[in-house]
Computed example of a mutant assay.
Amino acid sequence: MSDAIVKETYPAGDYIFFEGDLERHFYIIETGTVSICTMNRQGQKVELGQVHDGESFGEFALLENKPRSASAMAVTEVTLVRVSEEGFQELLEDLPVWANCMLKSFADRLKKTTAALKDAEDKLR
């Protein structure tokens, strides 16, 4: 593995990153469970979902070059593969150019979903 792709371990309860952080990498879960959460307009924690073995998270910051749209916390001890922007490009090297465009579109749709969830929860209160 190059420096662009690094293995990391986090104990249960540790935050991997926080909403608003400026980082240019994402994670693939080797083992464990991670909670993806955000804060609603009242400042209350809202879990958006959990990701498990083999799934990835944190792509938005990499794909859009914007601050993190949510926080990530280890629910169990997790072993992760952190993939930098360089590593991401290495992984995409053998894929057609449209794969990158599709991933960016995916990130945009998910960000809109996150905003809609925040709005929906506010209306329930």
Rank of each mutant, 00 (worst) to 15 (best):
S2P: 12
S2I: 04
I5C: 05
I5P: 00
V6M: 08
K7C: 02
E8C: 05
T9Q: 07
P11H: 02
A12H: 03
G13R: 01
D14S: 04
D14W: 00
F17I: 04
F17P: 01
F18E: 05
F18Q: 09
E19H: 01
E19C: 05
G20L: 05
G20E: 07
G20R: 01
D21E: 10
D21I: 13
E23L: 12
E23M: 08
R24F: 03
R24Q: 14
R24M: 09
R24A: 11
Y27K: 04
Y27R: 05
E30K: 13
E30Q: 14
G32L: 04
G32F: 04
T33M: 13
T33S: 15
V34C: 13
V34W: 01
S35M: 13
I36S: 03
I36K: 03
T38E: 08
M39L: 14
M39R: 15
M39W: 08
M39N: 13
N40L: 00
N40E: 04
R41F: 09
R41Q: 15
G43T: 07
G43I: 08
Q44E: 15
Q44D: 11
V46R: 15
L48D: 00
G49R: 11
G49I: 07
G49M: 06
Q50P: 00
Q50L: 12
V51G: 00
H52F: 09
E55H: 08
S56Y: 10
F57H: 02
G58D: 06
E59G: 11
E59T: 06
F60V: 13
A61F: 04
L63R: 01
E64Q: 05
E64P: 03
E64Y: 03
E64N: 04
N65L: 04
N65Y: 03
R68K: 06
A70P: 00
S71F: 03
A72C: 07
A72I: 04
M73T: 06
A74F: 01
A74S: 09
V75R: 07
V75M: 12
E77I: 03
T79R: 14
T79Q: 15
V81L: 14
V81I: 11
R82Q: 14
R82S: 13
V83Q: 01
S84T: 15
E86A: 11
E86M: 02
Q89Y: 09
Q89P: 00
Q89M: 09
Q89G: 03
E90K: 01
E90R: 01
E90S: 01
L91Q: 02
L92A: 02
D94I: 02
L95Q: 02
W98I: 15
A99V: 14
N100K: 10
N100C: 14
C101K: 11
M102S: 10
M102F: 12
L103T: 02
K104Y: 09
A107E: 07
A107R: 05
D108Y: 07
D108Q: 14
D108R: 13
D108V: 14
R109S: 03
R109K: 13
L110S: 04
K111C: 10
T113M: 10
T113V: 14
T114H: 11
T114V: 13
A115S: 08
A115L: 12
A116I: 13
A116D: 12
L117I: 15
L117A: 08
D119F: 02
D119W: 00
A120I: 13
A120R: 06
A120P: 08
E121V: 09
E121Q: 11
E121Y: 13
E121A: 07
D122E: 12
K123C: 05
K123R: 07
L124T: 08
L124P: 06
